[in-house]
Design a protein around this nucleic acid. Structure first.
Lengths: 382, 382
DNA sequence: GTGAAAGCGCTAACAA
DNA sequence: TTGTTAGCGCTTTCAC
């Protein structure tokens, strides 16, 4: 007495509350649900007529496939997690700097272009956050600037979910791949540029946190100083607090061994330093050369325009997502390929992206004040 | 001869590929899957000992519940969509302005605090984007600045998915609720402030797009002009193109009826106008009063510091998400409560948020140059 | 070419 | 108190 056979029929006649289901479409189109599924997904070898017919009916009924059901069945959600480390008390502050904004925009565009959506997730700081993580089915995750022993990364990788990081991870972190700038090269190049512009003593405005960016940049600075035989002159401050930047800039220029050029590691440092210079009556670039790392366009319009180091976050965002999706779709060797399971898990792929030094007035010693008083040049960039 | 009974058992003994399932936990803990589910979700009335035991086993097995299955079963995904209108060619540019950055950060934090995650989705511009939309199960959606006849919004609402917008929608758009600033009041107040500071002819730098913000602000300006009997002096430009701002600012100050005060509707307009003023040899605020709408902190450090109108995007983001989640959880009257169904569906809720005029040097006529550099003596009246 | 049936992993009635 | 069972809506072999 196999009652099983009746299931589909009886279900089909049941009241659909809101949305139409695949069964309703099948019934209305006079075909089976298999045909509907195939027609809508372009699978199988149905005659075009059937395909068209089914699509019409589906449209008429306002049929929307259930993402949840599809995900459950296929194991793919089309969702990519995006997370950032915590700065200070804020859950995360990735939008605080133009860098993250740009990076996220590019990442989102790339993901969408490949049929994925980004889910913003919190860094694993408190307890709560874990809940959210396990409440969403992720095909993969982008981690921005992962902490040295990020538990979420470890667990995701253990579960076989690809993780790609923006910023090179600590050795202990087994990410699938990572993308980063060559921070050492960038800083070195920039310091050389300042030296060429006549800087004798270059100062650094850096951060107190231990993230890779800060660490690598600072190290590169120290190494450069050593190489050229200059005493390091730097001030560090908690970069997550925007107010502290101004204070630190002030400290730096108040020092007895005041630098005649400064590189600021963080986005707002340009204005911080410019304001500090004004307070001390220092002219830029005559008395003080300035460079800061920023993606903001405001530095093209400051007085004077400030030279910036761009990390090209857009390119990083794009690359990170490409790598991730490649990993997701690549390792999809089918649910039955458990033979040579963890065999091909080699070293994580890593990609170094170029930076871009945008030279403006603030870092050019021998300048004829090409700032703004000049007649007209709306395009601006000098 | 019910063979059905054997399914669970046989399934349970089947090879679990990667992750442990609820059945494995049940088997390992020596209980049924119901008990596991209840224990892990805090439901049912199990003795604490059982609950603890199950949790331990689950932990030991590294059990993670399947979000997809939960979603399919419960109909709730814990996911909230976040979308923005398209600017120009970019899929979306919400990160381009500090406004969106702040708004999104606050929205994300609020959502996470209530156990939801945000999914970034494209505005329904091209065909492709629709795919992504229907590939993710959303409990609700936040729409930033919805287009007048946004098809996605209409469809979502039709499907019974709550939609809350940042920015008031056109009458035809049936959103669940919306949050917006009182743009008219803000602009009026700001113009009054400029007039009080001595402005005789206030100009406007506005946009060519037809979004609500631009429209309301411009209207308020025109109405104000009418009230005080001033001829409107404004230039409009495509706000999505950052370069155009500088050009438009230039145009505005080049006019024969040059204004002696300007309000710029968009974030970069402050620097745009400042640069233009410099080009024309206009001193700020002596010859030209300046205000722009911006969330950026750079205007505290420009020379001179520029008065800004803050829309308090953080508060808007928080409110939007609160409203949305309230709607999601409120209308969850259970799948069987179809009796008084659409009864309580009243008018969409709407919330007006205050703005904040941050007065700095650029809009104060009688100032003793409180900026930084000039040691100029306080010279009383203008 | 088309359809029936078997679940994906979980939750919630309902039994025991 | 705990276990059994019926699906959530879809994709996908495998028969026909």
């Amino acid at each position: 007495m196999t009652a099983a056979g009746k299931h589909q029929v009886s279900r089909s006649s049941g009241r659909r509350l809101g949305r139409a289901g695949i069964r309703d479409v099948a019934a209305a189109a006079g075909v089976s649900i298999t045909t509907v599924s195939d027609a809508l997904n372009g699978k199988g070898r149905l005659p075009d007529a059937t395909r068209r017919h089914v699509r019409e009916v589906a449209d008429r009924l306002g049929y929307r496939p259930s993402a949840a059901a599809r995900t459950l069945r296929t194991g793919k959600s089309g969702l990519i997690g995006l997370t950032v480390t915590t700065y200070g008390e804020e859950p995360f502050t990735f939008t605080e700097f133009a860098y993250f904004a740009d990076m996220v925009r590019a990442a989102t565009s790339t993901a969408l272009a490949r049929g994925y959506a980004l889910v913003i997730l919190p860094a694993p700081a408190r307890q709560r956050t874990v809940d959210v993580w396990s409440n969403v089915a992720l095909d993969g995750t982008v981690v921005i600037d992962p902490a040295d022993h990020d538990p979420v990364v470890t667990e995701l990788v253990q579960q076989g979910i690809p993780v790609v990081s923006d910023g090179r991870p600590a050795d202990s972190l087994p990410v699938t791949a990572w993308v980063d700038n060559d921070h050492e090269a960038a800083v070195t190049h920039l310091l050389d540029h300042l030296a060429e512009s006549g800087a004798r003593r270059i100062g650094l405005l850096t951060g107190t946190s231990t993230d890779t960016y800060t660490r690598l940049s600072t190290t590169a600075y120290l190494r450069w100083c050593e190489r050229v035989g200059q005493d390091p002159v730097y001030e560090a401050y908690p970069a997550h607090d925007p107010r502290q930047g101004a204070v630190a800039a002030d400290r730096l220029l108040a020092r007895p061994d005041r630098p005649d050029a400064v590189y600021g590691l963080f986005d707002p440092n340009g204005t911080d330093l410019l304001a500090a210079a004004r307070r001390y009556g220092l002219r830029v670039p005559e008395d003080l050369l300035l460079v800061c790392c920023s993606e903001s366009t405001v530095y093209a319009a400051t007085e004077p325009p400030i030279t910036t180091l761009s990390l090209k976050p857009g390119r990083i965002g794009t690359t990170v997502v490409q790598l991730l999706i490649d990993a997701i779709e690549g390792e999809d060797s089918g649910p039955f390929a458990e033979a040579g399971d963890s065999a091909t898990t080699g070293d994580p792929r890593q990609q170094i992206m170029p930076t871009d030094l945008i030279v403006r007035t603030s870092s050019q010693r021998r300048t004829r004040r090409t700032t703004v008083s000049a007649p007209r040049a709306p395009s601006g960039d000098d």
